[in-house]
Design a protein around this nucleic acid. Sequence first.
DNA 1: ATTTTTATAACTGTATACAATCCGTCATGT
DNA 2: ACATGACGGATTGTATACAGTTATAAAAAT
Lengths: 220, 220
Amino acid sequence: MQTGLEPKKRNLYEQVYLSIKNAIVNGEFLPGQKLAEAKIADQLETSRTPVREALRRLEREGLVTFIPSQGAEVTPLSKGTMAGLFECRAALEGLAARKAVAHISKEELSGIEESLLLASHFLEMGDLKKVIEKNTYFHDVIILSSKNPPLQQMMEQIRTQILRYRRINSKIGFRSYFLAEHKEIFQAIVNRDADKAEELMKNHVLSDLNHLLTGLSFLD
Amino acid sequence: MQTGLEPKKRNLYEQVYLSIKNAIVNGEFLPGQKLAEAKIADQLETSRTPVREALRRLEREGLVTFIPSQGAEVTPLSKGTMAGLFECRAALEGLAARKAVAHISKEELSGIEESLLLASHFLEMGDLKKVIEKNTYFHDVIILSSKNPPLQQMMEQIRTQILRYRRINSKIGFRSYFLAEHKEIFQAIVNRDADKAEELMKNHVLSDLNHLLTGLSFLD
DNA sequence: ATTTTTATAACTGTATACAATCCGTCATGT
DNA sequence: ACATGACGGATTGTATACAGTTATAAAAAT
């Protein structure tokens, strides 16, 4: 629906998709909550059609679960699912690190190097937001430099799902040694040691899982 | 659309989904072919709505690609994508084998053992259809026994995509030693050797990739 | 009081109508 | 001859109407 006053937007369904996605990841829509199409369509001042499409796409990403003839609900959270997601992430991101050794470019490498320095800097400054940003960038580059599109697509799905688990216990600070681990992985890639890069990345991810698990005692 | 004569079907969209999926995997819809919603809706004697939903779901599984404002097309095939898919499969199915060591049940184990014997039998008899069936069963059980739902879901997506590449060169017989590899993996699981099970499974999958690549010289 | 039945409301699933966009063709001008 | 632009057809994107199903709750029966 276009009122004519607002700037014209193409891809209405994309907007709807992003709105719902944010609402879920940020916890405005709670796990298990029912998502009635008409209600959401009203809220976003659009019709049911784009909402349906958006919900289907979110189902694809695991954020929404469809129950036949009963509609969609926000996918519930569980420790078991989280562990499963992290195991997959460890396997796939380990693979990404391995492939990165062969395919990463000079520019990508120096991008990582710079981000590591900046992360150290922001960590000293206590700017956690920026630290997380650089942390994410590190993983972004390695996944991209794997030059494996199916891998990238799967990792994107996994990461959005994992984000929900991070958000619900954002109280937990991050592990102090994650930055040292990043530097080690970086070194392994620079040294063209694929086995080591993969192994370090796997452990890094699984260590992240353990850290997160300690803060989620109330789940399941 | 219901004529009243046919048996009543719920989940019309499910039917549509399966029809299109089969058409793609079996090569009736060719890679790159444009999929006009209205045309398909006519063919299947339904309306555009279920077709749209089915296409979105197929997009999720990588069989269909959407180009904004231009609709859907059958995802093209490429050697690069195939290699990417197999690398992911190797990583994830390796993980599955590792987890199976910890989680597989007595029944699942004897199920595998029996299927291996049957496969040997059918191989001697030259019943390739049955051999492939037992082959698939072997992988099914291991993936299931990983007891990791996200892993299972991803593997399902990967396997349907890979199926397309198998179909286009079904001329290639399978490798004679795949059965021996299955037996080795089975032994590693029985012996509770997680490292070995993972390693063997990875190599098994990558060997499958190499075998398939030789028959696809015309791709890309 | 508890259970069963029935009616109604709410919602999903499907069909169709309408609007916006894209693509190709043909005409016009240089 | 070639580039440019306007028109028309086809197709996607969106809205809405309608049908079928499920859930809810009130009424009836035990």
